[in-house]
Design a binder for these strands. Structure first.
Lengths: 367, 367
DNA sequence: TCTCATATTTGGATCAATCCAAAACGAGGC
DNA sequence: GCCTCGTTTTGGATTGATCCAAATATGAGA
């Protein structure tokens, strides 16, 4: 129906169907099998043969058919990647890290954005199974049933969890030490003289949140501030930061410092302070998590726990490569060390005159 | 070698190789062909048969093999997507838009980050051909040879260009009206009383830059400001904005307003002003392009030409679906209309006392 | 020159689906 | 009871590579 009589515009020799191994073999005077070996860069074939075959491949304009190869071979050189919010620049950087490693390894990846919906995630994973991908990189959607891991094992599908994890060890995982990160933030604030330190964000539904809350709890206790204030649970969006801090600032006594679940929240929180006519750093210190690029550009520049998304992506991809090469090997957890990137959102600014921020009482998230 | 004697942990019946159409057929008492028709939701099969077959499929735990299907069928329900900077939140949003459409259409996509390298892009495209993807969504890397389009036609590979385009029409394209966007920015500034308006950024190596420059040129002439100032070409990164504006501010007479190629540059430019002790809006108005999420969060909130990346992604994906369904159809260009999102980076702030921004003379991109 | 080990090459079976032309079925009409 | 026509179903050919065991070529040493 949609089949025109002729391939519209190719004066070349794509006229016939398509060139196959068989054609190359005939042209080069060898067998199909030998051509196949050349394509796969097998050391078995003699140099002279290899050269001849390669010439034929070029001459006939051969195109390798991965689908056909995959039918028989055990690998597809293909990976599935699931993130839950690709619009978040943190994940953009992470995907860039993944891509850089896969490119070197001659792998290619399917990407899906689960939007934190376990159903959507599940559909994609099933599709990946149908595509016979060699493995998965998975940032599990919030609320994912831990049984998913068992399912993937049943499927015999290597899976590296990234950033968040579900189920119980051992599993493959690449992420950062969130507990340490929060501890660094708390210690930094305490050193600056803060005691009323709140942790803002997270619903405790997944590991990355639990780890942060645990880190906060432990660090506060270690500093002898255990019960001074606490954790405010909630979503982790800009808006949640914007609104959350405004609520916090109405409490008495006020907190003097807030550590945010991620930079998006922290940037929202700074805007929220401004909305109240307060000054980030002076009226309330703010620390974010992730150190996305934007963090350096806010006013004041945001102090943030750098979690190195690009590196996490690289490590996750490398781990997946190792697991694919050795499916039975011991599971690994690659935990990067975060680093507190100190900027100016905790500086007590020497007050002189009207606070500049108060010039923008109209600051909102939408305008 | 890496083959353990037993699939490690599946008490289920994945014990044997894998379930094929043949097995389903036997179980349901029909032929292979019928099962295939059921899988493809053909209206040919009788309801009773369909039900029976579906039951068998479920009972045996069948997994569709896309590789095998692709070998014979004309479609793979697979797409290749190439962007040049996935870490840029603009592209994150665009990819999210693409993903949302593809998900509805039961398509799945390979993603590559070309890093604006034509070589890397070419490698990926060849790989996509090997994978027999049904089509491509391509944001061409800077410096891509226009002959690429001819090559893709030779390959018989549908391709929708996004945001940038190479070659000459007709081709499929989805993007925004950059010329109009810049015109809106210029007109807005002129209405505020500005005359010394500079356009900052772009190397004129690709369509999206040329269109912006053209739009600037036309709008300035329409306003009778043709030769007042001009375009400063260069890279389009945050750093370029940061440094570019500092150079501009040392010229005499200074520009009073700067329109930036994208928001990243604009955010960098605002920081650059602060570094000089100048105030965005008051000492120099700034307008960005894209209206990424961060734009609302800067201080002052950035006025920006909204280009709706999510919608562009959706439109591009929909166009690709149409082209795949009808390869011979007339090429389409889907051009969205940008909208000037006015915030406060052009407000002449009533001066009172020391400018708050001057409190952060240490503002840099790295700290 | 013959043997034996090593280095190359090969053909047939196989992977798991789709395509297609033809066969089987079932219900009306004559 | 036979014929026709539309609806379902089917078997065989086909897609294009890899796997594997066996065949052949090559070279060194006796």
């Amino acid at each position: 129906m949609a089949e025109s009589s002729e391939p519209p515009s190719s004066p070349r020799e794509s006229a016939r169907q398509s060139v196959t191994l068989q054609d190359i073999a005939a042209h080069a005077g060898v067998s199909r099998s030998t051509v196949s070996l050349v394509l796969r860069e097998s050391p078995l074939v003699a140099d002279s043969t290899r050269t001849r075959v390669q010439a034929s491949i070029k001459a006939l304009g051969y195109v390798y058919n991965r689908g056909a190869a995959a039918l028989r071979a055990s690998h597809t050189f293909t990976l599935g990647v699931v993130v839950y919010d690709i619009a978040n620049p943190f994940f953009g950087a992470m995907v860039a890290g993944i891509d850089s490693v896969l490119h070197r390894e001659n792998y290619v990846s399917f990407l899906a954005n689960s939007e934190d919906s376990p159903g959507r995630q599940q559909r994609f994973l099933e599709r990946m199974r149908e595509q016979r991908v060699d493995g998965l990189l998975l940032c599990p959607a919030e609320g994912t049933d831990p049984a998913l891991l068992t399912q993937l094992m049943d499927w015999n599908m290597p899976c590296v969890q990234v950033l968040r994890h579900i189920g119980t060890p051992p599993f493959d995982y690449a992420g950062t030490d969130f507990e340490l990160g929060v501890r660094q933030a708390v210690d930094h604030l305490v050193a600056l003289g803060h005691r009323r330190i709140v942790f803002l964000g997270g619903e405790a539904e997944h590991s990355a949140t639990r780890a942060r809350h645990q880190g906060y709890h432990d660090a506060m206790h270690a500093q002898g501030l255990g019960e001074v204030l606490g954790i405010v649970r909630g979503p982790v969006t800009r808006r949640a930061g914007f609104e959350g801090i405004q609520t916090l600032m109405q409490e008495t006594p006020r907190p003097t410092a807030v550590i945010c679940h991620n930079d998006l929240m922290a940037l929202g929180a700074m805007l929220g302070l401004q909305r109240l006519g307060l000054i980030p750093g002076e009226d309330c210190a703010i620390i974010g998590t992730d150190d996305i690029e934007e963090a350096a550009l806010s006013l004041p520049p945001l102090t943030s726990v750098a979690t190195h998304p690009f590196s996490i992506g690289e490590e996750a991809a490398r781990l997946a490569m190792r697991r694919i090469a050795n499916p039975g090997g011991a599971r690994e957890q690659v935990i990067l060390t975060p680093r507190l990137q100190v900027r100016h959102s905790c500086d007590p600014i020497p007050a002189h005159g009207e606070a500049l921020y108060r010039r923008y009482p109209h600051a909102t998230l939408d305008a």
